[in-house]
């Protein structure tokens, strides 16, 4: 515990709520962006109705709420580039990766090549990822 300040932990943010109907999705995004300042090993998981947060083409003009979906594009600039989406949740909602925001990041270990941040994985793979985390934040 003596080198606590220099220890990098694996943080995972688990998002399971649709955007706009409740405040969870927006609050999660705020916490991720704030937490990005602490240089931890961060990943995001989108499960159940959480996958709706990443659907592209959101237009909130009619409901008079802030459209926060463009903010997900900024995650790559904060070194948050491991975004896991559960395939089973997409399938149940008739969605594919093509319905989601094309989130990208620049890989500093590969001559800043632009790469996809979103990785669609199975429930079984996601379960293993959960098991590897030091801290899990649930939204």
């Amino acid at each position: 515990m003596s080198d606590e300040g220099g220890t990098i932990k694996k943080f995972m943010y688990v998002n399971r709520k649709a955007p706009y109907g409740t405040i969870y999705a927006l609050e999660s995004l705020e916490v991720v962006l704030i937490g990005a300042a602490f240089d931890q090993d961060v990943s995001l998981a989108f499960v159940d109705d959480g996958v709706y947060q990443l659907v592209k083409g959101q237009n909130t003009k009619g409901v008079g709420m802030k459209n926060f979906s463009p903010t997900y594009n900024a995650l790559g600039d904060y070194d948050v580039n491991k975004i896991y989406v559960e395939k089973e949740s997409l399938d149940a909602r008739g969605l594919t990766v093509d319905d989601l925001l094309p989130l990208k990041y620049e890989d500093e270990d590969d001559d800043w090549a632009e790469k996809d941040s979103i990785c669609v994985i199975s429930s079984a793979e996601l379960a293993k990822l959960f098991d590897q985390q030091d801290v899990v934040f649930s939204f």
Binding site: A18, Y20, V55, K56, G57, N59, G62, V63, M65
Partner: peptide, 23 residues
């Protein structure tokens, strides 16, 4: 409700047949 569809990025061509959109 159409404005709620738009907010969530759900296009009207994805709706079940017979469902009517209102503002």
């Amino acid at each position: 409700l159409g404005p709620d569809l738009d907010a969530r990025g759900v296009s009207k061509d994805k709706l079940i047949d017979g469902v009517k959109v209102v503002d």
